[in-house]
Design a protein around this nucleic acid. Structure first.
Lengths: 146, 146
DNA sequence: ATTTGCTTGTAGCCAAGGCTACATTAACCC
DNA sequence: GGGTTAATGTAGCCTTGGCTACAAGCAAAT
């Protein structure tokens, strides 16, 4: 593979495969982003992000939340002390900020296109993780030019 | 939970949790959709959908593709004979048609918003699975009114 | 200071979606 | 027909993201 004739068709297939690969990577990243974003939210308007609270907001068991937090720590995005909640590191906060901005933009776009608020909120949650910078830029352009 | 005061805040949290739950469900469904769509493609313009070819297009090992096909069969979406390729059942074909239409619409929307073709293709692959009927309808409306 | 109750932690399970390495089977070309 | 090559299948492993059930810790009320 790689040095054949008929480059058109082959390229298209490779782009397709790459696309799927990208989706798989996005999935791996999205959990971290969701957790980071939520922790940031909780700290902002509560001062603390407790595992139980995180679990409740995400609709998962506390164990799942704790495991996810452990993963955040492993990746250097958060720190937590046993009974004193979770805090984001600088890197984690940056990730959260980025995710939040993207989320906001996606949501605004959906609303601008006339999607009902509830659906827009729910869909934005899923869509945001699959929006490349190029697409995000296009969204921003559209919203500005409106 | 459920009978407290301050219904506003609680409701918002529940909507959030529901949104995340929806995303998780979408993930479980999307693999099936991707495979169904691809199999449909391959059968259309090749007559056959072989496991190896599916694997190549998706950028995964043949084993992974075979396992996914087995899951499609388990769910009644496809049938396959050992060395004679995979075919979609009626239900599988319906799923594929639905996924294809949605995919097309998402892609068209991205293109209409000025996203470069390559990025649009890659992003559509990820976004399509998180677009609710309401959002899809809004996309269609926008494209028509353009 | 004890009890009671919420929050954390631990153990052990499951399915999905990946992989590599090895075995088998079909197909095609002499 | 026999052999080579490519497609399938099988075994066994890993990680993620879920779960339940049980154990331990902290805090607050009596």
């Amino acid at each position: 593979m790689g040095l054949e004739a008929a480059p058109g068709a082959l390229e298209a297939e490779e782009i397709q495969a790459r696309g799927f690969g990208r989706v798989r990577e996005a999935h791996a990243a999205e959990l971290l982003e969701d957790y980071a974003e939520l922790i940031d939210d909780l700290v902002r308007d509560g001062g603390q992000a407790r595992a139980t609270e995180i679990a409740r907001r995400l609709g998962v068991s506390h164990v799942t939340a704790v495991k996810a937090v452990a993963r955040l720590e492993r990746e250097g995005l958060a720190v937590s002390q046993p009974h004193r909640g979770v805090k984001l590191t600088e890197e984690g906060a940056a990730l959260a900020a980025h995710a939040r901005a993207r989320h906001r933009l996606v949501l605004d776009l959906l609303l601008a296109l006339g999607v009902p608020a509830e659906d827009a909120k729910a869909d934005a949650e899923g869509i945001e993780h699959h929006v490349s910078p190029a697409t995000l830029a296009a969204f921003a352009r559209f919203l500005k030019g409106k």
